[in-house]
Design a protein around this nucleic acid. Structure first.
Lengths: 257, 257
DNA sequence: CGTGGCTTTGAATCATATCAACTGACGTGG
DNA sequence: CCACGTCAGTTGATATGATTCAAAGCCACG
């Protein structure tokens, strides 16, 4: 299977050095089963991850035992970066399906800043984008009804799955339970159920076994509180002044003995 | 007034080059009045900001005209980074008090990656920390009562103000209206009022004019859903392999003619 | 001394949570 | 091949927290 590199090349033009680096990351992969913990909240932070295949939740626990899912990760996502500045992970990572990922040691990230500033800058931009996504999610949860939250999440998910090439005829595999959706959107699983039924009844979506189809995208958009912002691509990198573009600096491979 | 540089030196040991850079940023400042827009959502993104003095809200608008405040910024914070990857700003910035800040052109950030990788890495870590803060906020809002949300926010605020040296005897200036708190915590201003009164009645807090005092921190912690995670400092940078630590690279000033 | 912003209060209503029970699909072991 | 247990989804009745609307009070400022 071709790993979903589209996200890694999002902000920075593909360069041979970067490509070498990525393939070296992608060479040793780990596999996780459904429901397996990839990293528990509180574990020492020793690496970040690149998700090659499958879905992963990133969640925060509360004292009373409940948890808030803060992000549903899809293939191509980088995982674990928020905890980079923490001694112990602030977010748990759990496999929602069978998962294949690459573990990237922290020192590797340091080398990136040292030797491939353009890639480091791209990574930086990409995590800022995640910050916007979090802000967006906060907005859904903070100030809309259940209907808007569910609609908003489904639209966002659809868009991301589409970008990863995982949508067929408006439909996609959907491994989240209603309880998961509840933990993600700040609702009870039960209320999620009623809301999904409502969406179903209005003909916006179609649910079968473990698959979901968005039929009426515009209908959903009418229910959702706000649309996703437009992301820049290479332009953003341009505006930063193209870090690393022309600089003569030691090549990664020359030092990597 | 001494600008609050503590945040800039959080993850990286002070170096003469970095100090020069920071003082060059800090040399031209802008001033904003209370309630003035620093940047509107949708404005083209041309710079980021360093907040020297005053409070600033960062907020996202919704179609129905309501807005969600996603962060209350205090002196020493970097503003506007989430929109770095967007053509048009995804978050509005508004002065909550009189404000003094420095505007940093995007190209300056690019230069950072190019020429001072250690500072770039520190900036990266610092924005990851912000991501954790957002996740934390999401957790409050997604899965707790009004009481927990308010208590959690006040504790977090107190901690940050304390780090900035703005707390005196447990008390601090508090320019947020109850409506602001509502927009921040996903509640009605009215409900915030009732909640504050409740906290007041139990003796956890004390409100006077535009000032707030947290009297019973442990009591508040009992109400809040979760405590803030422990942040690493220089250690985090160590774990990354100290980018830029020993590298001989062109000094910033030599090129800055 | 009046005006406008912010806070406080009450009553009615709505959305969501909670509790409890039932259903159907699936996988497992006898 | 069937009986069983588990897990996800479904449904109803009731409780509660938060919103909405309306109005009064307070204070600061011009």
């Amino acid at each position: 299977m071709q790993p979903p590199l589209h996200r890694l090349n999002e902000f920075v033009p593909a360069s041979p050095l970067a490509a070498d680096l990525f393939t070296s990351w992608l060479s040793h992969r780990k596999v996780f089963r459904r429901h397996q913990n990839i990293r528990r909240e509180g574990d020492p932070v020793s690496s970040v991850f690149f998700l090659v295949k499958g879905w992963v939740t990133s969640s925060v626990m509360m004292r009373d035992g409940r948890r808030q899912i803060v992000k549903v990760h899809l293939p191509g996502d980088m995982l674990g970066f928020p905890s980079l500045a923490l001694e112990h992970a602030g977010e748990g990572l759990e496999a929602l399906t069978g998962v294949e990922l690459c573990s990237i040691p922290l020192a590797e990230i340091g080398r990136l800043f040292e030797e491939l500033p353009s890639v480091a800058a791209a990574l930086f931009l990409s995590t800022q984008k995640e910050r916007i996504a979090l802000m967006q999610e906060l907005t859904w949860i903070g100030s809309t009804h259940a209907l808007g939250r569910v609609a908003g999440f489904l639209l966002d998910l659809h868009e991301r799955l589409d970008a990863a090439g995982l949508v067929e005829d408006g439909g996609f595999d959907f491994p989240l339970t209603q309880a998961h959706l509840g933990e993600l959107l700040g609702l009870t699983g039960i209320h999620v159920n009623r809301t999904l039924k409502r969406l179903d009844a209005t003909g916006c979506i179609e649910r079968t076994r473990r698959r979901l189809r968005l039929i009426d995208l515009n209908g959903l958009r009418g229910l959702a509180p706000n649309h996703a912002p437009r992301y820049a691509g290479i332009e953003a990198w341009d505006r930063l002044g193209r870090p690393g573009a022309g600089a003569a600096r030691p090549a990664l491979r020359e030092r990597a003995l």
